[in-house]
Write a protein that binds this DNA or RNA. Sequence first.
DNA 1: AAATCTATGTCAGAATACTGACATGAGTCA
DNA 2: TGACTCATGTCAGTATTCTGACATAGATTT
Lengths: 153, 153
Amino acid sequence: MSQDGPGVELDSSLGYLLKEASSALRAAMEGVLRPLGMTVTHYSCLELLAQRPGLSNSELARGAFVTRQSMNVLLQALERDGYVTRPEEAPVGKVLPTRLTTRGRRSLQKATVAVRSVEDRMLGGMTAEERSGAFKILRSMIRSLQDSAEGAP
Amino acid sequence: MSQDGPGVELDSSLGYLLKEASSALRAAMEGVLRPLGMTVTHYSCLELLAQRPGLSNSELARGAFVTRQSMNVLLQALERDGYVTRPEEAPVGKVLPTRLTTRGRRSLQKATVAVRSVEDRMLGGMTAEERSGAFKILRSMIRSLQDSAEGAP
DNA sequence: AAATCTATGTCAGAATACTGACATGAGTCA
DNA sequence: TGACTCATGTCAGTATTCTGACATAGATTT
């Protein structure tokens, strides 16, 4: 049947296409991360901490697009398994700054290589101009959606 | 703090941007669908059936990017509540073709208006050329990811 | 200074989606 | 024809995420 997903009007919907692309990316990432015993959210959390050490639970949650509660259970597991550390008491306020351990950094290294290969494949068939165009367009979509969301509370 | 999500290298990652855009779109859709008592998957299923009547459970699942099992429980609920109908026995094979009822169509109408407003907002700041560019680029990404996924089983 | 507002961390319960497994029908190939 | 492969519908159990709620710390306002 020559895999031809649903194709009447949905193919003309940018929203559907966006979801399809995101879904394909997630599936590809899961595919390369599974052998490493890592989920996408798991990886996202570690990557965020590598690039911005000391992020709080809530900040990590926003960065990984999950709720604080979900990130909290993940962080507890990561802390238990020795990938990250959090101070016993909050240095200021209630915010607990999280940091990668050596083990966490080592684990992240392998994952980064795997994920980068996926992203490279995704960028493969695109010219430099198309890439910068993709950035511009995605940012435009995000801004439009966020603005309207804030405008109507 | 002028909401500035995590922003070191991640802002230069197309994958992260794609996830961010998709997440923003989903949040916006949830926002307009919630007052109608409808989830995104719920709406997706109805929209698929409106455009391609007679789709099977498995086909709907692929179209809505969930598993057959998840779509099955949704379909059972939709059938119970009178939004869709499925024949008692399969006309051919095991495939049960699903169709919208009048109630389902009516319910979908309101949702479609709401969702279209979101998509319009998303397309708001884009020129016609940027839109066609967005289509081209998203399709390119999907194709690259799918090809590589099929190539390495 | 006091009150209000906002954001955070965390607990508990509910909803949702997923993995694993099974039987069945249809197409394929020897 | 018979064995094999593939896809489908469905059941059961698991896992993950979300919603709701609470107490608390800092910022803002009065």
